[in-house]
Design a protein around this nucleic acid. Structure first.
Lengths: 193, 193
DNA sequence: TGTAACTGCCTCATATCTGTAGCACTTGAT
DNA sequence: ATCAAGTGCTACAGATATGAGGCAGTTACA
């Protein structure tokens, strides 16, 4: 169990700052190498290893906190994009732009399963939300309906991941333009028919 | 140094069979979890851990052999697709289908850097080959030229990876149809203009 | 059938990572 | 200024992974 949750007393400002540093640095390190040691993460965050263990009960717990931080951001993006009510074209663009930003801030790979049940449920819900949106986008005529089921849902996450790091010189909004454009229209030159 | 390389004496048939089992099983295991232990790989291959170490000088050496096996397959695909001479549309389809098959047989993630210099050079050369091909495809009017440089090259590998495992009920050729179609034309419904 | 190659199993040393403990010290809030 | 919260440092035990040695037993090939 993470020490931060449930802690209701007074917390010093530098303590929370250190904690955020550990979280964001940990996200970067774990994204780069999922088997990064706690010592390496602590060193990169400019913090003693012991300090990490004072905040997080275990390495697994730290990872869970990183995942949770990412899921927080993703849920906010989905909420802001109003995936199940906004016009599909608008929602898609908002979602793409938001997730690219999230991928840059929390670049962790969440596909690797984690023991914590609540996290897996959150992940499942997020996937379901996006699936439902893509279904709606198909029903409303934005997306093609002649593709293998789940193909767009499968392709979208890695696409957003590549956009986050591959289009690093572009802002999230600009990168979203590229992604949505190439996703919908493809990278091929339209041929006269 | 891998024991197999440079070994010129007589080799028993079951020995080479065991070696192939270790390689392919290792590829699957390492793809699933890059930090899979040698013991786990050996157990999954139905072989003693000691046997693995008799063939490969170290864990790193085993990984290098797996990478090399994948690169062998990729190079063969590139050669068969005649990336720098065949008509771009044909070459693209052959390449996509071939790499999907390779991804299914050798699902290892090669993006993680390895110490061995020769492997990095091979990787570099493969990337350069594909880059050159994509440039030719753009010059010849198959691919759009108004996209950020390198965007297609960035997107293609993860796309082929997802196709290999996401479209598992399709053959490599059928999956290639889907990939090429959605890559060139996109997943959006073409709008009247 | 005999021989050489190969394997499985048990063991061992070494290294590394995890998680915990105690103590001196610094820093922030009041 | 004082006190409590928080940190850095050193050290330690336990677990686990890496390689390597030895030996009996088995299997392919002549």
């Amino acid at each position: 169990m993470c020490y931060v949750k449930g802690y209701l007393g007074r917390v010093r400002a530098d303590a929370t700052r250190n904690l955020e540093r550990v979280l964001s640095t940990g996200a970067r390190m774990l994204a780069d190498d999922p088997s990064a040691t706690v010592a390496a993460i602590a060193a990169a965050a400019g913090v003693d290893r012991r300090t990490v263990y004072r905040r997080f009960a275990s390495r697994e717990d730290l990872m869970a906190a990183v995942y949770a931080a990412r899921y927080d951001a993703v849920e906010e993006v989905i909420k802001a994009a109003r995936l199940h009510e906004a016009p599909v074209a608008v929602a898609l663009h908002l979602y793409v732009e938001g997730i690219i930003a999230v991928n840059r801030k929390w670049p962790v790979e969440t596909s690797r399963m984690l023991r914590e049940v609540t996290l897996r449920e959150r992940r499942r819900r997020l996937i379901d939300d996006v699936d439902a949106f893509l279904q709606r986008a198909t029903d409303e005529g934005l997306l093609r309906s002649d593709l293998p089921p789940g193909w767009v849902a499968t392709v979208l996450p890695p696409l957003l991941e590549q956009a986050a790091e591959g289009l690093s010189e572009l802002s999230a909004a600009q990168a979203a333009d590229v992604v949505v454009d190439t996703l919908l229209r493809g990278v091929g030159v339209p041929r006269a028919r």
